[in-house]
Design a binder for these strands. Structure first.
Length: 299
DNA sequence: GCCGGTCAAGGTCTT
DNA sequence: AAGACCTTGACCGGC
């Protein structure tokens, strides 16, 4: 079981997601910023290995404006050795590095321009992971998209468009249940037609489900992962106390997490913590896991 | 230096 | 019809 966090290590004081305004774009600026982001990314991975955090979600801003039409720089070629260095380090230390394109990536949008932009964005993510020489267990996770007034049609459109994607994308693509539109059951309908693996998000499931208990919903999602996909990925977050439903908590509640692990006992999976204090919560989770392991080994 | 407005992109829901 | 929210900082101009 690998655990990790998203995008940025707060302790280190660098970010691998540094970007700039579109108005400031120049080829040189893009390569300089990306080069610095790669240095920070490697530093972050060093920190993670030192703390036994073997999963890390790379920010989509690692290469700013990579899929924007303004960009004509072949960043993967220009910085090839530096991408390879990150990938080599990841392989040496058995790290898993998924990515998660943002809210504007909508494969099933009825708008052709939005759809085309989404494919460009996915191509960028695939190219980035390819430049690192990482295998297909390193996923690109997206949400299904919008409903556009007709969920059946929108699911059908997702499936049609998935079939048109290049293999460089499909071999890495995974979908995640969301909190308002597409439940685990909805994702399963897409999986059945496409074979795409499903990333289980516990908080989203709590907000949108078909009445299945956590363990059952997780098991359904976990069964969608094939040999080439690796161990199932899950996103873990907890509800902020008293805040609007769906708001992420500031830090990991260790008791809640321990209960979650208990509920899913017997399964193997890798966990990304989507919690505001980033590595602090991942380290707390590490301690929870280490305690449980000690208990188990003493039995 | 620090503050606050702003920044590529969409969709859904609330008021 | 307009604004909030999702998520999410980080840039950048103005002081």
């Amino acid at each position: 079981m690998k655990i990790g966090y998203v995008s940025t290590n707060i302790t280190l004081g660098c970010t691998s997601a540094r970007t700039f305004r579109l108005a400031s774009y120049s080829p040189e600026r893009l390569l300089e910023t990306t080069g610095n982001n790669l240095i920070c990314l490697l530093n972050t991975l060093h920190f993670n290995v030192a703390h036994d955090l073997r999963l890390f979600r790379i920010s989509s801003d690692l290469v700013p404006f990579a899929s924007h039409e303004i960009n004509e720089v072949d960043w993967a070629a220009a910085l090839a050795p530096r991408f390879a260095a990150v990938g080599n380090y990841a392989r040496q230390h058995d790290l898993r590095l998924p990515m998660h394109p943002g809210q504007y990536t909508l494969l099933n949008s009825p708008d052709e321009k939005t759809y085309a932009n989404s494919v460009r964005e996915l191509s960028y993510h695939a190219q980035l992971l390819d430049a690192m020489g990482l295998d297909t267990t390193h996923k690109i996770q997206i949400h299904v998209g919008g409903v556009y007034g007709d969920k059946d049609a929108s699911i059908a459109r997702f499936i049609e468009r998935y079939a048109l994607l290049p293999e460089a994308i499909t071999r890495r693509l995974a979908i995640e249940n969301d909190d308002r539109l597409y439940s685990v059951q909805d994702c399963l309908r897409i999986h059945t037609e496409t074979g795409i693996p499903i990333i289980f998000d516990n908080l989203h499931h709590a907000l949108l489900n078909a009445g299945e208990p956590l363990r059952e919903a997780f098991a359904l999602a976990a069964a969608t992962w094939g040999a080439a996909d690796g161990v199932p990925l899950v996103d873990y977050s907890s509800q902020a106390e008293g805040a609007r439903l769906g708001n992420h908590a500031e830090t990991l509640d260790e008791a809640d997490f321990a209960a979650y692990l208990e509920t899913l006992s017997g399964f193997d999976f890798d966990i990304t913590f989507e919690i505001k204090d980033k590595e602090t919560s991942a380290l707390k989770a590490r301690r929870v896991l280490d305690r449980l392991e000690r208990v188990t080994s003493n039995e």
